[in-house]
Structure formats: structure tokens, C-alpha cells
Design a protein around this nucleic acid. Sequence first.
RNA 1: GCCCGAGUGGUGGAACUGGUAGACACAAGGGACUUAAAAUCCCUCGCCUGCGGGUGUGUGGGUUCGAAUCCCACCUCGGGCACCA
Length: 832
Amino acid sequence: MDRYNPAEIEAKWQQVWKQERTFEAPNPDDPAAADRSRKSYVLEMLPYPSGTLHMGHVKNYTMGDVIARFRMRNGFTVFHPMGYDAFGLPAENAAIKTGLHPAELTKINTGNIEQQLHRLGVSIDWSRELATCDPEYYKWTQYFFLKFFERGLAYRKEADVNWCPSCATVLANEQVVQGACERCGTLVATRSLAQWFFRITEYAEQLLEDFSELESWPERVITMQRNWIGRSEGAEVVFRVAELDIDIPVFTTRPDTLFGATFFLLAPEHELVERLVDGTEFENPVRDYVTSARLKPLVDRALAEREKTGEFTGRYAVNPVNGEQIPIYVSDYVLMEYGTGAIMAVPAHDQRDFEFARKFGLDVRVVVSGGGAGPGDGPVLEAALEEDGELVNSGRFDGMPNREAGRVITEWLGTEHLGRAAVSYRLRDWLVSRQRYWGAPIPIIYCDKCGTVPVPESDLPVLLPEVEDYAPRGQSPIATNEEFVKTACPACGGPARRETDTMDTFVDSSWYFLRYTDPHNGRAPFEPDIVDYWMPVDQYIGGVEHAILHLMYARFFTKVLYDLGLVGFREPFTNLFTQGMIYYKGAKMSKSKGNVVNPDEHVEKYGADTLRLYILFMGPPELDVEWQDQGIEGSFRFLGRVWRLVGEIIEKTKPVGSGDFAVTGGAAAILLRKTHQTIRKVTTDISERYRFNTAISAVMELVNDAYLAKDGLLESEEGRGVLRFMAETLVKLLDPFSPHICAELWEKLGHERLWLEPWPAADERFLAHETYELVIQVNGKVRDRVQVPAEAGRDELLTIARASERAARHTEGKQVVKEIVVPGRLVNLVVK
RNA sequence: GCCCGAGUGGUGGAACUGGUAGACACAAGGGACUUAAAAUCCCUCGCCUGCGGGUGUGUGGGUUCGAAUCCCACCUCGGGCACCA
């Protein structure tokens, strides 16, 4: 047989798959009535076409391909589409640099990526390819914006927002990582701007509840989302400013500590601050404080170590549980965005309040005893007491366990109309407007007479206009295009101006998986019957860096579309797999560090089959792994071994039938058993554990065994039959990982289309062993190993163990006090 | 500080529900083939050793006949959150 030539055979089979449209999965004629039990939607996160694919993508798409091909061979109708997250800053920044239009640049990049995916042999249904920057696509992104707007889920408000000075645009909370821009790492600043938001907070509860609908998501992704949403149960309690007849509600998670509230705090942004101090001697210092607090970047305010600051307002609030008058301060550690923007301060049991009290000389009153501290210890405490205990200094609630007291006090406040049980979330609304060019324009028009008017659906898409200069200047570059901005009000026909901000690209990627199901629909984003047929995604695969951002936004979007009656499911991704990253030379691959390994070079040198195999063989897919330059050689050598082994078997043996043959024993039986063991191992490793590395090593073991047994087996008719069966099985098992070489070998074995073959099944009859190696231990240490009949019983095993000379050396002169027999494994003799 | 995840040979990693630690591969060493090299095929490969054995899965304890695996305490690395009342 010829030498293994990956370039030739890979091109050949890629051509066949393209011509025969092997991986296209057409929509059923009647999707509403079609059987959904055999469909499988396998999806990898769509790439961002900033350049070409890197190794992380290769890993992602190869993993998805293994699952897709495996399910296809197991009788599923596999839905495996691909697209491009094509709007966004990198294309725009590159456009500014090169002068090319972002659309042209994106087209070049998506073309490259498509080529790369073809050359990797990924089983994609190319008839459904899409790009989010295509007007046919973003028309519907805008359509959803209007639907959100109609429902009050998209709104505009003036707020202090995160501003990235480098990207010259605002960012959502989720896009700020440790005070810096998630994309470029620049420290974010604060700006007060009128911006568009999606009311994701309305769905906080559902986002938490519906975790129960997910089948298999990594626990840590769920935990990260749960923490991000940050649900807290507690109470809303009303404090009264008697002099001014104002009620101020606060949120607290510790209603049990109400009797320990010795002062009261307002966020600097709180609207009542002005009313409290207006016309008093406290007016000026408080105003100064508020002004300076608002000038501070949000990042600085978030630093927990910062010393507490504040200003007395001169007013007092009445604690509803005991009628006490407590002083009201303004302090910037109280956040306007959380709870009610006002808190009761309990310094004895909250560290932040404690620090404030010590600095301003305010009372500290213990109301929960415990940890050795009693009712009178307030003045001498060195830190807040946060443990549970019994109530003290709390009137008729004294002596009650504090957790129970919290419930009782909340209930009592309810009957007195002074408060109620309440829930608060850390989650903030999703800021979706961006002051940049390369995104979907927000379909809104401002009219002096009619106000904020949505663009009528029939006028969609609002096309992204041409501009002369994309450079960010703090407002969208589109604003410079007067022709675009000036328009007629859809309501009154009068002169009006268009919104010039574009949408966050995470909006685009929040629904792309739905569009795949019906990508050419011009009348609607998708047909409900069709989307309900294919969705939800059965297996989603991507990087863990999207644990909060994309995955939470997509879940939110799906829930809104469900409420709009557009889809019949509430969760988009039933199963999620998050892959680990690929490191190189001890660091994450990045252009700036110059440690990028280019996949194309390796495809050229070794072929896609080798690269795919190696990238999965490197380690467990969910863990981070380090790229080894020499490692890939091993995978290439292995495929060469497979090629020569199967080649020799083709030359020296004849095709066999079903593999259902009798063997008399010896080497033939052993290899036959190994073949069936390998089927079992590879099948469970792919389908149940997603451990591709161990599946591949099992196939390697089979090849090693076959090499050693080959020459002997070629001597007999029986041996040749087993070898031929082994070769065919080997090719079938390796196919999901390295499909080109397998397709070629399958053809050389005298067959036609490997991907139409059913996945092999392990036959129990051939798995049975006649004997096995029994381990004989003395005091838990291995002293001997002997072959024993598989059916040997406990007594028989004990007799064999006692007869072992090697074991006897360690039992001699000692008393056997216990004998442990584990049939199929070992005997342990315990001596004293 | 709080919440996750991970520590196993020179290297990447394997070990199902507690039962032979180091599968598979890389690197290294040896042999066969070859005029030679490459390629290929075969063998060795945790550490110590007097070849009986001893020791070994981040550290220290514990449970057990038996622990990489379970429990407690600690160390190191990676990730997430961090004034959210």
C-alpha cells in the first residue's frame, strides 16, 4: 500500500463531504409532528472572526465534531451548524488601522475561518451558515429590541455607567472584571450618560429557578451565575424622619439585629439627601461630600479596604422596633443601585458599620450574644460579631435564637405595617448601548413632539450607514452621518433624530442558535414549529470565560422569547461542556506574548487528523493543558502505525462477514476480546464521560496488541478473520477523532461510506475471561500474583492464596488473624 | 477575606462505586534492519537496593484488612466574587 499521505486523502474526503452534502440536516416537512427523540443539536460557541482560528477553537470544534459524528453513527439526526459573531470592536479597530471597511475585513476573516474549518474536516451543515453582521440577521436583532421595548424590557435612563476610555464606549457590569475592561484591560471610569438597558433583573428569580431544568452543566458555571445574580433574603423596614414626615425604607438581611441599629445611612445619590439638609447648617458639608463621592470612579468606591467616610445630615430616623432616634449620615459605602440605597447600620454585627461607628464615635450595641460576648460588650468590641447566638438588648425578643428572631420580627413588622419580607439581588440591568460603529443600530427615533418612538417593524432593518471615520470620540461614529441621523418621526411625520448608539455584540450572540434552525426566513426570525423541533441545544460546548456573560444573556433572551410566545422552551442549552484552555510555554497563548501555536502550520505538516487526535489526546477536555511541540509527533506516528497495520491486513486477509464467528482460543481469542473491550471503552468514554484522551489511548492499546499478535495470527484462517474484524473495528472507533484517514481505510477495506455505518457494539460473549490475575496481599502489600480460573469461588481463592510461596515468606511464624477475599481482584491475608 | 478547581515519574497524563499506583504518549537509553542516516519494528524506563526487599500520589494526622480515592488540619498554584447591607 502507498505511504500515508494526509494532504491527499484529507482533500479527497473533504471534497466528497462537500459534494454529497453529507452533514446537512434539512428541516422536517412537518416539524410540529416530527419525532424529536432522535434529533441531536450539537453546538459549539460561534467564533469571533478577528483573524484566524487558534488552537482553542480547534479544540472546541474538534470536540463538538467528535460528539456530532458519534451521535450520527448512533442513529441520531445531528444538527451541527456554524456561524460568525461578526460585529464587534476588533474588526472596527483593525479597520481604523488599515482603512479597510469593517465589513470587508470581516468578510475576509470569515472566509479564512470557513476554509480552516473545512480543512479540519468538521461535520458542519454549511447550508445554515450565518454572520451576525449581515442585515438579514441583525434585522431580527433589531426586531427583538423592539419586542423588548414594547414589553418595557428595554428602557433608557440616565445613570452612572462604566466607561472604558480606551474602547471609548460604555460597558455592562458583566464586562467589567476587577475594575477593568473585560476586553482591553483598561481601568474603567464612571460617566453619567443616558443609556439603553435590558431589564434582566426582572428575570433574576427565573434565571435561578430554571437551573433545575438543566441536565448537565458544570457546577462551577452554575455557582458563578448564582453568585453573580446574588439573591439575598431579608426584610424591607421603614424608618421615619419624624421632623419632615418622610418614610425611608431600607433593605436588610438581618432583621434580627434591628434593635442594634444605632445610626442610619444614605447613599450619596439618594434623592432624599437634598431634602434632609436643605436650608440647614449641614447643607454645605453634605453637598460637598456628595459631589466628591460622585466624582470618584466606581472602581475606587468598590475597594473594601478603603477607610470609611461620611457626613452627618443633622437629621434623625426613628427605629420602628423601639422608637429610638438614630442619626442619619451620608456615606459612599452605601450603594444606590442595591436595595433601597439606604441602610440601617448595626455596628455590633456588621464589620463595615463597625468601622464607620468607631471612626465617628457612634454607639455599638450588642444584640446577639455569642462567641463569648455579652450584652454590655459593645464599647469594647474589636470587630463586629457575625456569629449566630441569642438575642439580647432586644426587648421582648430577648433569649430567642437570632435566626428564628429574624423571622418573627419580620412577621411582626408586617402586622404593624412597618415592613415586610423582601428579596434583593446583586444583578444589575444589562446595559446594551455602545458608542461604537460596528454593531446593530438601535432602532429608535427621537421626536421633539412624540418623544422616544420605535422604528416600525416594516422599516427594519435600520441599516448601518457609511461613515468617513470610525474613530471613537465618545459618541457613536454614526452620529457624524447627518443623512442617517435626520429622519421623519414615524408617529407624526415631523423632523426627528435617530438613536446613533449600536447594540452590545452580546445581544447578537444571545439568539444565533435559534436563527440556525430557520436561517433563510425573510418573514420572521424563525418559524416557531421549526425552532421548537430542533431546540433546545442538546450539547453546547465552549470556553468557561463565557460562564456569566454570554451564557447568562442567552438564557435571559430565551426566557423573554418564551414569554413573548415565540419559542416553547425556557432554557436554550440543556447540556453544557466547558473546555479548558491551551497553554504554551507556561502562559495563555496570545499574540502579545508571542507564544501562539498556529494550527494551519500543523495541518500542513501532519494533517488535520493528526492535529485533531493530538489536541484531544493531550488531556481531559475540561482541564487546561500545555501544548507540547513534540507531542504531536506521537499522534502522527500513531496514525502512520494504524495506516501500515490496516494496510498489511488488507493485503493479507480477506473480508469477513459480521464478526460473529467462533474462535477456538489462544491469541485469536485474546485479540478478539481486546477488540470488544476497546469498543466498550471508547463508547463509554465518548458518550458518558467525554474523556477523549482515554478513548484514544484505548485505541492505541488495541493497535499495540495487534502489532504484537499480527505475525502469528496471519498464519491461520481463524487468526486472519480476527485481524480483519479488528481492523474494521479499529477504523470505526477512530473515525470520530480522525475521520479522513478512517474514511480512506474503510474504502480500502472494500466498503463505501464509513459515516453511514452504525457504531460498533461490544459483544458480551467475547468479553468474558477464562482466567484472571489474582493479587495476593499480606497486610495490604502485594506479595504475589497468580492466574486463577474466572469462576473460582472464595474458598478456592483462599486455598490458592495460602498455597503461595511468596506470600508464605511473609506469613511464616505469624498468626493469620483475618482473611479478606475480593473475587475478581485479590486476597489479603492479615497477620500479626 | 469568601466560594470553587487542581497538586501523581524528567514531561503530558491514567487509575470505574476505597482493592495490583504510573495505562497511553512524549523525552531518554538499548537492540534489530541499513554501507550509513532517516523511517520502521522490538525491548527497558518512579526512586533506593546488599535483588530478599524498602519506599513512593503537595505536607501532617485519622478512618480502614487495604487510601491517589473517604475525614480533619495545613501548604502551593489557578479561577470566580469582593463595602451587595
